[in-house]
Design a protein around this nucleic acid. Structure first.
Length: 362
DNA sequence: AAATCGGGGAG
DNA sequence: CTCCCAGATTT
């Protein structure tokens, strides 16, 4: 047996081995009890870059609120964002809504049933299209997610930087070969991701009880902890937010974020961003409309500073709670509107805003 | 090809 | 602290 046929033997046994492992080790997760493409799509969007433990309660709430794609299409986008609040990557919620309407209106409620048609939906890329196509329709297309990168890099000893375009092609090509030997494409795709999530984990993988131990290039050379190779991320950008919370008669001034920036379509307060931290209110350069409002307001408590860490940014926000004492309530700076506390509790807001409110307003 | 988009949990 | 999670889209 030469090296070529030996290599092919590993490729052919790979999928059946994982499928067998999966039948014994799989977790009982809610989206594994359905083949409804709508529910599978919903679960996959929620789980993008999101751990199962974090996404699961959101999935339950969304299924309860919108049992069908038509229900979701009929909903208000703000309602979806409110349900999505705290999960991050809010474009997912906006795309969810847009795609629900696309399926309901343009496709007459019939969910796309092939990889290439699924790929046309907003928010559905190569991974999600493959997941829905295989889980709901049995199509033989491989999922390639973070788990798959890790498992394949280790078992096959691939040292390419997984953040590059070339690696994406390498791993996809290998994954396409491997799924050909699967007994069932849906089971195999579930299996390799589950295997990455609970056996071949990023830190301290359970190699001693691994069914692929003697076929794993990384284990056989003691390089588990070195694979996959991944370029380091750029350092996070520091940002300083100065929030003015204008308050009067049980209302607060808030605005919907519409700039091409974080937290699009979520609601926050009057924001003045500075390029350095400002400990004193009078040192913050204010736009004229804000300055005029500040002048007829009084600071009702010492400013509170909170920090929110994002993937690429560290937000340090200082909150100035201001009671407006006089003047025309109809003349707020552009974009701001008065909201009652009850209304505010229903608005989708960034986590740092809900943290500021504490238990007062969700 | 590189940057951007959240938030949380594990170690 | 660092890493990374059932990635996609924009620049």
């Amino acid at each position: 047996m030469n090296w070529q046929s030996d290599f092919n033997t590993i490729e052919v046994s790979f999928a059946p081995t994982l499928e067998a492992w999966y039948e014994y080790h799989k977790r009982d997760l809610p989206w594994r009890h359905t083949r409804d493409p709508y529910l599978i799509w919903l679960s996959e969007i929620i789980l993008q870059q999101t751990r199962v433990a974090q996404g699961k309660p959101y999935y339950e709430r969304f299924v309860e609120a919108y049992p069908t794609v038509a229900n979701m299409a009929a909903a208000d986008e703000r309602e979806l964002l409110r349900l999505w609040q705290g999960l991050g990557y809010y474009s997912r919620a906006r795309n969810l809504h847009q795609t629900a309407r696309y399926v309901t209106k343009d496709l007459d409620g019939k969910f796309p049933d092939t990889y290439s048609e699924l790929l046309k939906m907003k928010g559905v890329g190569a991974y999600t299209a493959a997941a829905i196509a295989s889980f709901a329709f049995g199509e033989r297309v491989p999922v390639v997610d973070g788990n798959v990168y890790r498992v394949l890099a280790r078992v096959f000893g691939i040292e390419e930087d997984i953040t590059t375009t070339g690696a994406k092609k390498t791993f996809s090509a290998l994954a396409t070969r491997l799924i050909q030997s699967a007994h069932d494409p849906a089971t195999y795709n579930q299996a390799i991701m589950e295997f990455g999530a609970i056996q071949c984990t990023p830190v301290s993988p359970d190699c001693l009880l691994c069914p692929l131990q003697q076929q794993c290039a990384a284990y056989l050379t003691g390089r588990q902890h070195l694979l996959p190779v991944k370029a380091k991320k750029a350092p996070v950008r520091e940002r300083f937010f100065n929030y003015f919370i204008f308050r009067i008669d049980g209302k607060m001034a808030m605005r919907e974020r519409t700039d091409k920036d974080i937290w699009q379509n979520l609601h926050d307060f009057c924001l003045v961003e500075t390029d350095e931290p400002k400990a004193l209110l009078r040192t913050i350069p204010l736009p004229e409309s804000v300055e005029k409002l500040v002048e007829r307001s009084i600071l009702v408590e010492p400013p509170v500073t909170l920090t929110q860490l994002l993937s690429h940014q560290r937000i340090r926000a200082t909150f100035y709670l201001m009671d407006v004492t006089e003047g025309d309530l109809n003349s707020l700076p552009v974009g701001l509107n008065w909201y009652t506390y009850k209304e505010i509790s229903q608005l989708p807001k960034p986590v740092i805003i809900t943290n500021y409110f504490g238990d007062l307003l969700g």
